[in-house]
Amino acid sequence: MRSTWKQLWPPLVAVIFLLTGWQLAVSLFHVEAWILPSPTDIIREFNANATGIWVHTLATLRLTLIGFPIGTAVGLIIALLLHLLPWTRRAFYPLLILSQNVPSIALAPLLVIWFGFGLLPKIILITLVCFFPVAVATMSGLAQSDGIMLNYMKMAGAGKWQIFTKLELPSSLPSLFSGVKISATYAVMGAVVAEWIGADKGIGYYMLLQKSAYHTDRMFVAIVIIVLLSLVLFAIIALLEKWLVRWKPRRNS
């Protein structure tokens, strides 16, 4: 408990410092609220609108919680496939890299044309955003297992599948989780972008509404919610990692 507090206070202080600076800057230079609202403005707006925003938050959360696991699973499956069948790696790895040069926002209208306005195009978009970090990190983790342990397993008569399940998969876990954590931060963003495509609720939809009304303070409320959702998702993954990779010696820093 003490150690978590120790880890927590430096970023907390930094955030408070930034917020104070922001508040002071806005009031000192008399910045208009529709250009840049102050933190207190944002908090006030948040409190006034809490119930209305709650519906949108839930909708985005739901979309994220459907899309993120699917995206992660797709990333994992691609990594396993490309690892276990070397010819698929040779064939598809370059394509995989290329796919990341296509901006997902540019794909959004296409997805609407192909799949309409329902849940499917949104899930596909989140998956496109999430799968890549998981796939790449998992593949590099799978390829980096210890040579001496590999030799031991081979001499003990382990087959390819046993080497995979008993050596490569567990030793890839730390790397796999660093990929999943990156995806977790992308997932909420992906959901918001997906809601820009076309939705009748969700934070993304809320942002579009407020933008057209020049409600800058509400835009900031939406951003704060996106950040908070991302943080929570990240924290859950980090906890899961801590439990699954509990065998790893903790570095003293």
Binding site: D146, I148, M149, N151, Y152, M155, A156, K166, L167, P170, S171, L173, V245, W247, K248, P249
Partner: peptide, 11 residues
């Protein structure tokens, strides 16, 4: 077989 380095599985 016992290898020269222990090579125990950390997990």
């Amino acid at each position: 077989y016992m290898p020269q380095q222990p090579a125990l599985f950390p997990w």
